[in-house]
Computed example of a mutant assay.
Amino acid sequence: MPLSEHEQRMLEQMERALYAEDPKFATALEGSGLRTYTRRRVYQAIAGFLVGIALLMAGMVAQWIWISVVGFLVMLGCAVLVVTGWRKAPRGGAPRGPMGAAGRRGPVRQRRSMMDRIEQRWQRRRDEQGR
């Protein structure tokens, strides 16, 4: 349900007030930190995997087995980091917070009922102000 113009203005005013009062806290609430960190970690692991392939190939060409083993271990470690990082990465529409992916069914119902209560309160306030 989209916000009305009045609601959007009120929300923008609250955001500006929050940024003016405590900019550090407001930036922390933006929530892109975990997503950016996880994405960066996955990219670093992919780059490490490619370095592992290069070490493996270089060890095979130079016929130094220990370099190939190191390259394989680097590849294996980076593959584990990619898989775990990919699973932990927050989805675009996923709820943020401590609940994460586990136990979504129960809290979603509670959130909907909470949102309904908030919307009802908002409508009552708007009706009272309109009188």
Rank of each mutant, 00 (worst) to 15 (best):
A94Y: 06
F72D: 01
E15M: 07
A102K: 10
Q129C: 04
A20F: 06
L81K: 11
I46F: 07
E15Q: 07
D22W: 07
V51L: 09
R125A: 11
L56M: 05
A26M: 07
R87H: 10
Q44R: 03
V74Y: 01
R111E: 13
L11W: 06
S113D: 11
Y37P: 01
G85A: 02
G92C: 06
G48C: 07
Q44P: 00
W122S: 11
L18W: 08
P95A: 15
V69S: 04
E30Y: 03
R16I: 05
I67E: 05
S68L: 08
P98V: 15
G106Y: 06
R105G: 02
R117G: 05
D127H: 00
R35S: 10
S32W: 09
Q129R: 13
R41L: 10
R124Q: 11
L76R: 00
Y37Q: 08
R112L: 15
R125E: 09
W122H: 12
V70I: 14
E21F: 15
S32K: 11
L81P: 01
Q129V: 04
A54I: 05
L3N: 09
A26K: 04
E12F: 05
M57R: 01
Q129S: 07
G85T: 06
L56P: 01
P90G: 05
Q44F: 09
H6V: 14
G100W: 02
A79G: 02
R16W: 05
L29V: 03
G59K: 02
D22S: 14
F25L: 10
T36G: 01
M1V: 04
G33L: 03
R16Q: 13
V83W: 11
A79D: 01
E12R: 07
M115A: 15
A101V: 11
A58P: 00
R40M: 13
Q123K: 11
R131N: 08
R9Q: 14
M99A: 14
P90V: 04
A89L: 13
